[in-house]
Design a protein around this nucleic acid. Structure first.
Lengths: 112, 112
DNA sequence: ATCTTATGGGCTATATGCGAACCAAAGGAA
DNA sequence: TTCCTTTGGTTCGCATATAGCCCATAAGAT
């Protein structure tokens, strides 16, 4: 981020990331994978994996999702098939909504 | 990252991010929020929100979770209370597991 | 007990994600 | 139709997240 942006996160976001990280660590341990092994499989560094497991919110979501996927954590509690199905439904609903959100629109020539 | 890292993502991760982005967009539209408004509320730029809604995996997870939280999407299908409860359970299970994953250990003086 | 490995934390260099400011096109409202 | 707002693309400068090292400690195995 440019210009030193101090982001604030809601409690919910922080807890969600912390939970996901803890789940990853728990599952990794159960699978008897070292941090280095899991990091290698995910194509990330060991340091990044450590931050992911700690629930660091500045990590890129791709790394987090990838690690979660590798250890078998189902995001949205859905497998690949369910994911695509759910996505299809969402796309359909989205198609029914207006393309842009109109807010006001200055009162056109309401001749004073 | 140093040394030009080209990351690969699994289909599952890509679909999960795409779904989350689509859900965000759908909900934002239903709430009649413009991209600028939602971005402001989340404390991020409009450009970043667009990438989030597209399911870009390079976005920081904090931004994605924050936006999702603001529009009311429940991660893990759980509210704050459920999140903490679930987290507590995970921590407990983690406490029962070994602190480190030992792989082999060279055969010590197996004095043939 | 010793040995060996995993983990955590710190450090540096560098690729890159971010915000900001643009522009053009699309699409509701009047 | 004519606005005018929203949206989707850019591009660019810069703060920083990441990879890749280190080292010290923790902890499992023997």
């Amino acid at each position: 981020m440019p210009k030193s942006v101090t982001r604030t996160y809601s409690l919910y976001s922080r807890d969600a990331a912390a939970l996901l990280g803890a789940l990853i660590r728990e599952t990794r341990t159960e699978l008897k994978l070292t941090t280095q092994e899991l990091a290698d499989r995910a194509g990330i560094s060991r340091g990044l994996l450590q931050r992911v497991e700690k629930g660091n919110l500045k990590c890129e979501i791709g790394a987090v999702f990838e690690v979660a996927t590798i250890v078998g954590i189902k995001l949205f509690d859905a497998d690949e098939t369910a994911l695509r199905k759910y996505m299809h439904q969402t796309k359909e609903k989205l198609a029914l909504l207006p393309k842009s959100v109109r807010k006001k629109c200055k009162a056109v020539h309401d001749d004073f």
